[in-house]
Computed example of a mutant assay.
Amino acid sequence: MADLGDAWEEALRSASPAAWSWALLRQRVSDLQGCSGRGIHQLLSEDQADVLVLRYRMGISLTAMTAVMGLEAPALEALLRAGLRGLGALPSVPTWHM
């Protein structure tokens, strides 16, 4: 999080310091993963994938997600619905291919 400390004044000048910080964290994680193109982030938009992981994988409440991501609850709810719809639209893989 040294990156955030180095750019703290810029984050504070932004419209939403939480959203600015979240974007920085997302970028650093992507850099560390080497853009492997694996997982849910390959299938959905970044925001949709993030809210699904935070909510269903990590069990974080919508209230906490508003603070972490800098988005309002209605926007998060819309991202959750869109992400779930996006995953539901994926074709099923027959078990005999596994």
Rank of each mutant, 00 (worst) to 15 (best):
D3C: 05
L4E: 06
A7N: 07
R13F: 01
S14D: 03
S16M: 00
P17V: 00
P17Q: 03
A23F: 03
L24M: 15
L25A: 13
L25F: 05
L25M: 10
R28M: 03
V29P: 06
S30M: 11
S30Q: 09
D31C: 05
D31Y: 05
L32I: 08
Q33C: 08
G34H: 05
C35G: 13
C35A: 10
G39L: 06
H41G: 15
Q42N: 07
S45F: 01
E46Y: 01
Q48T: 01
A49R: 04
A49V: 02
D50T: 08
D50V: 02
L54E: 02
Y56N: 13
Y56D: 15
R57E: 13
R57I: 00
M58W: 05
I60C: 11
I60G: 01
M65P: 01
T66E: 15
V68F: 05
L71C: 03
L71S: 02
E72Q: 06
A73S: 06
A73R: 15
P74Q: 13
A75N: 03
E77F: 02
A78R: 12
L79P: 01
L80N: 12
L80W: 08
A82E: 10
L84D: 15
L84C: 14
L87T: 05
G88K: 12
P91V: 08
P91A: 15
S92V: 10
V93M: 14
V93I: 11
T95Y: 09
W96D: 14
W96E: 13
H97P: 04
H97C: 15
